Simulated scan of single mutants.
Amino acid sequence: MNPTRKRRLIIVALVVAAAAVAVGLGVYALQQNMNYLLTPSQVQSGQASSYKTFRLGGMVKAGSIQRSKDSLQVTFTVVDASGTMPVEYTGILPDLFRDDQSVIATGHMDNARFIATEVLAKHDETYMPKELKDAMAKAHANKKVEAGAAQGDMP
């Protein structure tokens, strides 16, 4: 093989290898920064076991908010159509955080409890991630069916 061709082949091979390494590192970095949105029923079914951190979305259960008297620690329960998940958060909560409010919490699982590092409260009726909106619509549909069935059972 001609020395000039050999040199060009080595350079092309090095450029291709460098590009492959760069793409691989980019994909790995993007994978580490992805946050998946799951509902409490999805977490309870085991879908969250493969994620180190993820987002938990649902409604704050009425009467479940408990604030610590000597720190900023707050515990509350997030619910969806068929699941509940206890959440623990230390920090200042958004002003719109309250019972029966849509919330998205970012964090990780610790035993059977979700430890949140960030809590976002829904700010108006126009904002809601598609996945959470679908889960909430399903929950409301199930409540209507259950209410209708309960009324149908009465004489």
Results as ranks from 00 to 15, higher is better:
residue 154 M to A: 12
residue 141 A to K: 09
residue 40 P to Y: 03
residue 93 L to T: 13
residue 119 V to I: 11
residue 58 G to Y: 04
residue 16 V to W: 08
residue 102 S to W: 12
residue 49 S to Q: 12
residue 43 V to D: 09
residue 11 I to D: 10
residue 72 L to Q: 14
residue 12 V to E: 09
residue 130 K to Q: 12
residue 155 P to Y: 14
residue 137 A to G: 14
residue 123 H to D: 14
residue 50 S to K: 13
residue 74 V to H: 05
residue 95 D to V: 11
residue 149 A to S: 07
residue 27 V to N: 10
residue 79 V to R: 13
residue 53 T to R: 15
residue 125 E to P: 02
residue 6 K to C: 08
residue 57 G to A: 04
residue 3 P to A: 11
residue 133 K to F: 02
residue 70 D to S: 15
residue 129 P to Y: 04
residue 25 L to S: 01
residue 33 N to F: 06
residue 18 A to W: 06
residue 42 Q to F: 00
residue 120 L to Y: 03
residue 136 M to N: 07
residue 86 P to A: 08
residue 54 F to V: 00
residue 128 M to E: 14
residue 37 L to H: 05
residue 97 F to V: 04
residue 36 Y to I: 13
residue 81 A to K: 07
residue 1 M to C: 01
residue 92 I to K: 14
residue 94 P to F: 00
residue 23 V to R: 10
residue 64 S to N: 11
residue 33 N to T: 13
residue 23 V to L: 12
residue 110 D to E: 13
residue 140 H to I: 11
residue 84 T to G: 04
residue 29 A to N: 11
residue 55 R to W: 07
residue 26 G to A: 02
residue 107 G to M: 00
residue 40 P to K: 00
residue 19 A to I: 07
residue 79 V to F: 01
residue 37 L to Q: 00
residue 99 D to L: 05
residue 9 L to R: 07
residue 41 S to Q: 15
residue 38 L to E: 03
residue 39 T to Q: 12
residue 128 M to C: 11
residue 135 A to D: 01
residue 149 A to D: 08
residue 150 A to K: 13
residue 134 D to M: 15
residue 125 E to T: 14
residue 132 L to M: 15
residue 37 L to S: 10
residue 104 I to M: 04
residue 98 R to Y: 08
residue 96 L to V: 04
residue 14 L to I: 13
residue 61 K to T: 00
residue 150 A to M: 06
residue 95 D to M: 11
residue 42 Q to H: 05
residue 112 A to C: 07
residue 104 I to L: 08
residue 117 T to C: 02
residue 16 V to C: 07
residue 3 P to R: 02
residue 61 K to S: 09
residue 117 T to K: 03
residue 129 P to Q: 12
residue 125 E to F: 05
residue 73 Q to R: 15
residue 8 R to H: 06
residue 31 Q to H: 09
residue 6 K to F: 10
residue 19 A to K: 00
residue 44 Q to G: 08
residue 91 G to K: 00
residue 92 I to Q: 10
residue 142 N to H: 05
residue 141 A to I: 07
residue 25 L to I: 03
residue 80 D to M: 00
residue 58 G to R: 01
residue 39 T to R: 09
residue 15 V to P: 02
residue 147 A to R: 12
residue 103 V to F: 02
residue 80 D to N: 03
residue 128 M to I: 12
residue 139 A to W: 01
residue 137 A to L: 03
residue 58 G to D: 02
residue 63 G to F: 04
residue 78 V to A: 12
residue 85 M to N: 02
residue 45 S to I: 01
residue 82 S to L: 05
residue 13 A to E: 00
residue 99 D to F: 00
residue 94 P to M: 07
residue 148 G to W: 05
residue 13 A to M: 07
residue 118 E to T: 12
residue 29 A to E: 08
residue 28 Y to M: 03
residue 18 A to M: 03
residue 78 V to L: 06
residue 8 R to D: 13
residue 22 A to E: 03
residue 12 V to S: 00
residue 90 T to C: 10
residue 69 K to W: 04
residue 133 K to V: 04
residue 60 V to K: 03
residue 107 G to I: 10
residue 154 M to H: 04
residue 117 T to V: 11
residue 135 A to Y: 05
residue 80 D to L: 06
residue 1 M to A: 09
residue 148 G to L: 08
residue 86 P to V: 09
residue 50 S to T: 08
residue 90 T to K: 10
residue 4 T to L: 05
